[in-house]
Structures are given as structure tokens and as C-alpha cells.
Amino acid sequence: MSLALETPAAAERSVMEPVAARLASVAKETHDTFTLNLEPPEGDPVAVFQPGQFSMLYVPGVGELPISISGDPERREQLTYTIRSVGQVTYQLVTRRPGDTIGIRGPFGTAWPMKESRGKSVLIVAGGIGLAPLRPAIYHILRHRGDYNRLVVLYGGRSPRDLLYKKEFAAWGMLPDTQALATVDYGGVSWRGYVGVVTTLFRHVRMQPKETVAMLCGPEIMMRYASRELETRGIPPEQIHLSMERNMKCAVGFCGHCQMGPYFVCKDGPVFPYTSMKPYMDLYEL
């Protein structure tokens, strides 16, 4: 066995082989959530992604996980991930120091329908960490503002201290033709905003449902009720898109873990049109 270059060229890499990327910075978002900026080798296809896609992040000796890309798709020199520390691998990821190496494979999966949404309004519905995979879509819309009509971002969190990207979120709300509303399950005494599940924000949305594309990411139960309600409010089901989560080990359809009905969430998803997911969302233990 010979020592190879730090990162073998993409063409000769197996799909299971990560690229070693330098951790440029770690920013604390909340008490348990961190945003990591990684620097992949220049020009490597690992950094070319569509909003909604994910990578596999690897810490040697610890493990590998699917993590959605949460940064700007047009900033090719950096890959950004927002990670909630809830287990062994996520803890190891968020406690790496700048200069450390993290393995990346990807990008994988389907993307938000940015092209198909041109000329329409976009309604973003996020729950908790679900805002992270939607942020690249928001960045894309803001960069190409003329291509889209209204932008509405609805965001539900557990409590004010769990809300991500607070400053950015407030700034989005100040932009013309843009609404950004947050709600929490439990507000506490100093919270002046909305309290309740994210669907309670729907009545504040100003847009034409037939001309709106909805993009949802959050806990499955939130997406189940939100998609149902959006449909009753007149958004055609084929214009509602959901990002699903399942156990994922390989991201390329080999491990079998992420199957959901006839789909592999890794390669047929994670972003699905509601029309594909509707028959399966209410099936317990599918």
C-alpha cells in the first residue's frame, strides 16, 4: 500500500472515499448548534452543489453522517454546514478546531426546485435545524431576486434560544417583497414574537397560492401538517416540496437504510415533491 496524495483526484476516487477538507472556522449558533466552514481542495467537485443537497461528513475513527449544506451555493471556495450536536459524530464535528481536517463526500441527493420556481413566489417553511438545508435556497433567491416574486420565510423553533441565524433572519424580514416570521413553542417572558406551531403563521402570509412554490424542511410531523394545510390553502400539491430525513449510511443507494416506501431518500430525495410523499407520510413505521 502506498501513501497517496492528500486528496486523490475526483475522477479516480471511489464514491465512498472522502476528500480531506480543512476546517476554516466554527461559529456557535445556539447552545447546541454550530456552523462549520470547510475549505475543500480548490476546484474539487465536492464543493459544487445545488440548494437542498447534502454531503457526508467524516471524522476518522468516529464515523460519518449526512449533513445538509447550509451555505451559499455560489461561494465555491467554502462549504458551510450547520450541525446540532446530538450524538457521537455530531459532537466530534462541532468540537473540531480550525485547521483540523474533516472528510467530505458529495454532494448528494436532489435539490430544491429553484429553476421551476422562477417567476413564482417562494414560501419557505422551516422547523428547528430544518432551516439549515433551506438557507442555500434563500441565498439563491436573494442573489437572483428579480427571478422570483415574493419570498416568505416561516420558521418554527422550540424556544427563542433555539432559533438559528437570528441576525440574518431579522435582516431578511427587512427586505422588500419579503416576509420572515418566526414562532416558538415556548417563548418565556422576554419573547415578543409569535408562539405556536409553524402552521399558525400561515394566516399572516401574503401571496397567491396558485403562483407559489412551498419548500418545507423540519420534523416529519411538522411537514405532514404543514403540507396538508398548504394544500387546503390552495397551493397545488406538485408545488409543495419536502426534504425528508432517514437513517443514511452511504448516500449512494448501496446501504439500504434510507428506504421510504419505493424511494431511497439519499438518491431519490432528500427533496421530494409532496405528490410523491403524500401516500407514505401517514404510514406509521413505514
Binding site: M1, S2, L3, A4, E6, T7, P8, E17, P18, A20, R22, P60, G61, R96, R97, G99, D100, T101, G103
Partner: peptide
Amino acid sequence: ERNGGAFRILE
């Protein structure tokens, strides 16, 4: 193979 906080992937 690890080298401090960095690592390299062996062929």
C-alpha cells in the same frame, strides 16, 4: 492516517 488534528486518506 492522523497527523495532529489533520488526517490523510491512504490509497
